[in-house]
């Protein structure tokens, strides 16, 4: 991981945070929530692979940590579906 890559990822994280904040100002709903979750997935994956240093590391730890992120966001997504829990 070069310092330039580290800087690019930070820039992506900042921009994605701004987009998520802006989406939260709107009326919300299924499509917006899906986009917010997709942003969280992209941000989390960048942190796990590039900042935590798990890119290219042998399993199982990278799978477990990435699997945690995917599973948690997927369950949240299902729970936020319009018909869920009603």
């Amino acid at each position: 991981m070069t310092t330039r890559q580290i800087d690019r990822i930070w820039l992506f994280l900042v921009v994605a945070t701004g987009v998520a904040w802006w989406l939260g100002e709107g009326s919300g709903g299924g499509a917006v929530n899906a986009l917010v979750l997709a942003l969280a997935l992209a941000k989390g994956t960048a942190v796990i692979r590039d900042y935590m240093g798990l890119r290219g590391v042998r399993p199982p730890v990278p799978w477990v940590v990435l699997g945690w992120l995917v599973l948690v966001l997927a369950v949240i997504g299902v729970c936020f579906l319009p018909a869920a829990g009603r």
Binding site: T17, A20, W21, L23, G24, G28, V32, N33, V36, L37, L39, A40, K43, G44, V47, L69, V72, L73, I76, F80
Partner: peptide, 10 residues
Amino acid sequence: LVLFPLIYVM
């Protein structure tokens, strides 16, 4: 990064 969208945004 999960907590912020879950509690503040969605």
